[in-house]
Amino acid sequence: MSSLESLLDSRQVWRAQAGGVSDGGEAIASGHAELDELLPGGGWPSAAISELLSSGAGNGELALLWPLLSRMTREGRPVVLVSPPGVPYPAAWRQAGVALEQCHWLDVQGREALWATEQCLRAGCCAVVVAWLPQADSRLMRRLQVAAASGNTLAFVHRPLAKVSEASPAPLRIRLHRHAELEILKCRGGFAPARRIAFGAGA
């Protein structure tokens, strides 16, 4: 028993249930009650990248982000989408409560998309940056993570399922399953629950 305590004292053992103690940055509520309860700090990690892995568009990624985006845009803060998988349908975004005049999207591909994402993250004036970067490897993800931290910007990067097994520097990794179901693969400062979480009521 004493050896366990000495291990704890020397901080060589991390206690999962300790949770909730996030490292510095505060969290931003996602708008989904059940998800906020599970995420350390009670929401998306600010000034960091959250990675969303899915098999493609239509897995509820917008239902997941819309509550956050609508809150941010209605506060008058700009949101940038970088190389989204389709053309954003303004009527649908407006119906979701997003203030369209604060919403911008960048129709770019390849290296330019990476460059643009990094610029938006570093500038520190975007409330949220959402990027679709199937080309990003873990080295580039680290670069974007550093940019997000230096610009103090909340960012989401969508990558294909093939990257699930790849190491990633993102503090939060979420896999989107069928429509409106997600699985937390990794969350720094917390304990990733093994079950799937349903969010939102359809699109």
């Binding site: 954003p88 303004p90 005049e101 919403c103 911008h104 999207w105």
Partner: peptide, 20 residues
């Protein structure tokens, strides 16, 4: 400033607004 920088490199048509 960010807007200016993005447009300078990517061109004016790349950065699009959402208009209903």
């Amino acid at each position: 400033a960010l807007h200016q920088r993005l447009v300078a490199r990517l061109g004016q048509p790349a950065l699009k607004p959402l208009v209903e």
